[in-house]
């Protein structure tokens, strides 16, 4: 039977393998997030029609990806955890997509 300590050890091993993330990398990601936020705001001022929503969603997804992969360390986790997180996002994407089957075709 695998115990929860097994999980901690594994996690510790990950830390040792990759070391803590460098300040340079973290700062870079933070700047990236800020730049994307600025892009979101700018994009709202240009009228792209339906593409406005696509742009906002796309940029938000990119930002969430950066946070999850680096700040939340998903990049350094094993396949199972990655797969589970991915499943959650695929379901979310499908849910949002199916909502647009309504919103996109209303008259």
């Amino acid at each position: 039977m695998t115990t929860s300590t097994g999980m901690t050890d594994k996690h510790g091993a990950h830390e040792a393998q990759h070391g803590p993330l460098s300040y340079r990398l973290l700062l870079g990601i933070w700047l990236g997030l800020m730049a994307l936020t600025a892009t979101t705001i700018t994009a709202t001022r240009i009228d792209l029609g339906f593409l406005n929503v696509v742009a906002a969603m796309g940029i938000a997804s990119a930002k969430a990806g950066l946070v999850i992969f680096f700040f939340m360390h998903l990049k350094y986790e094993n396949r199972l955890i990655k797969g589970m997180a991915l499943t959650a996002f695929v379901i979310l994407a499908i849910a949002i997509g199916l909502t647009f089957v309504d919103v996109g075709y209303r008259y």
Partner: peptide, 22 residues
Amino acid sequence: GSLVWAHHMFTSGMSDTAVLVF
């Protein structure tokens, strides 16, 4: 079962495309 929710909304004024899909 996670993809059928809008069948509660067939008479709500949702788009006909959505009615068909759900």
